[in-house]
Amino acid sequence: MPTRPFPYTIIDGFVKYNEYMRISFHKMLAYRISYLIGIITYIIHVSVYYFLYKALYHQSSTINGYDLQQMVTYVSIGWISKSFYLNYIDRELTEEVKSGHVAMDLIKPIDFQLMYFARGLGQSLFRIVLFTPPIIVVTSCLFSISAPASPWHMLFFILSTFFSVLIYLGINYIIGLLSIFFLSISGILYSKNMIIELLSGLLIPLDWFPLWFQKISAFLPFQAIAYLPLKIYLGSLVGSELVLALILQFLWVIIIGFIGRLVWKLCQRQILIQGG
């Protein structure tokens, strides 16, 4: 593609990456059985934690400042939002490195990171349109979920979850790049999911953890994925706390994006195309 003057480069860029987004969206449409099963999987997750917390609250009405209703809401909304901030670009990147298809992407005049971000956004778009709504319906039928603290909190929650999407994308991109150093990283991919579930506060709110742990996690990007948006939903963050949380999330988007670019620079020296 010949280089065109400034305003066109942005439009061209948008068209280019938009195409990646579109393709990812359609790919997700192709797997119908996986789609149905995905919905069931989320219901299973919410159920496990619903019953666990219900049993935990059988003697006390509040634990660590949360009552049962808040906890059920926390867990349900947590998994509902996971159903759209999740993406599989780490797995896709690994597959492409393994099969050598990554070579085809390298010769294209595109930014490698933006391409994967576009793919991930395509997946999230699919999820938010077709995947998350049925999960919301089923979950709210089975369990009693509280409404957000106020319409404003809902709005900020949505904004905050959009940041979650970007942070998760950034982390997945970095993890996916690791496959260039280690040829088989299925173990990392599997445990990464679990580590993020725990450290992001999805399984259990971070303010239940011991203080020293909370201090550490305040400096990690994971709390920005689930804990902060959920606290916003519950209305626990107001005023300057809320603004601070959103700024923190935004900063993590930038930092992780930057680390991703740095790792990619290192990778370009390491890359090894398998097969021929």
Binding site: L52, A55, L56, H58, Q59, S60, I63, N64, S191, M194, I195, E197, L198, L203, I204, W208, F209, P210
Partner: peptide, 19 residues
């Protein structure tokens, strides 16, 4: 270790039981 930490944090208060 992840589930271990989860259970440990869940029972942070001594008196708590699950059913």
């Amino acid at each position: 270790l992840i589930t271990l930490v989860f259970i440990d944090v869940l029972f942070a208060k001594q008196s708590i039981t699950i059913n």
